[in-house]
């Protein structure tokens, strides 16, 4: 892993805990993700994946330490740094009363694009994600897979250098998953850094170059997937996952 290259994400000594909660706490957490990487963050339920993504995207504020995205401190740059990443949340985060085109028009504007740029990107994305035929239909009539594609399209409309995906393929059929993963690979080829979390570990194996396992607010391991499998003498990411995080139920 070439950490000397410009870092897409540089987290140093991160400290955070939920107010009035004895549960999850980050203390002195460090994480570095190189630019152009396909990075997977995995861990059991409640391990801290979504919290870490929320801290990276500014949805939560860190109490200690710093988070830099492409060299910009997210605390200091406030909203301007948000142009550097696209976020695809696990929930359908758009307006179901609107059509894909109307959603892209609105979120494109909020992402800082001009009218012309929005029109161009909307055309491209609807074509790539197979939504042209339903471009003007209200999204609330769509299947789960179509909604996932709309969710993804909104996250990438402004061509962000970093794309953060929280379980982007949950609940979709094989065809949709295949299309989404292919599109993510395509984006990465064009230089987009992918930061991805999922419980679909077989899917993640095909997608991610580097992985980190997180549990109880701590990064247990971080390296390239091939190195980790070799080091821990495991055949698959799932085996590695169970080996390092245990088989007990998590709440």
């Amino acid at each position: 892993m070439a950490l000397t290259e410009p870092l897409a994400v540089d987290i140093e000594n991160l400290g955070f805990h939920y107010q009035g909660d004895d549960g999850l706490t980050f203390s002195g957490l460090n994480l570095k993700i190189a630019k152009g990487m396909r990075f997977g963050l995995f861990g059991p339920n409640g391990a801290g994946k979504t919290t870490l993504l929320s801290l990276m995207t500014g949805l939560l504020s860190a109490e200690e330490g710093s988070i830099h995205l492409l060299g910009h401190d997210i605390k200091k740059h406030n909203k301007a740094v948000n142009k550097l990443f696209g976020f695809v949340p696990q929930d359908f985060s758009f307006y179901q009363e609107l059509s894909p085109v109307e959603n892209l028009e609105f979120f494109g504007a909020w992402s800082g694009l001009s009218r012309l740029q929005i029109r161009k990107r909307t055309k491209e994305l609807l074509h790539i994600l197979g939504l042209e035929a339903v471009r003007n239909k209200q999204v609330d009539k769509f299947s789960g897979g179509m909604k996932r594609r709309v969710n993804l399209a909104i996250g990438v409309i402004h061509n962000p250098p970093i794309l953060i995906l929280d379980e982007p393929t949950v609940g979709v059929d094989v065809q949709t998953r295949h299309a989404i993963i292919n599109y993510l690979m395509e984006l990465n080829k064009n230089g987009t850094t992918l930061i991805y979390t999922s419980h679909q570990l077989s899917e993640a194996e095909g997608l991610c170059e580097d992985v980190a396992l997180i549990d109880d607010g701590k990064i247990i391991v971080q390296d390239s997937l091939s190195e980790l499998l070799k080091e821990h003498r495991q055949e698959s990411l799932e085996e590695l996952f169970l080996n390092l995080t245990g088989k007990a139920y998590r709440n």
């Binding site: 995207t57 500014g58 949805l59 909203k79 301007a80 740094v81 948000n82 142009k83 990443f85 976020f87 949340p89 929930d91 359908f92 985060s93 758009f94 307006y95 179901q96 979120f107 504007a109 909020w110 992402s111 800082g112 909104i154």
Partner: peptide
């Protein structure tokens, strides 16, 4: 509730 708020918060607009 729908999560649009979360997405809006991550965009470069107040």
């Amino acid at each position: 509730v729908s999560g649009s708020f979360i997405r809006l918060k991550t965009l470069p607009t107040n």
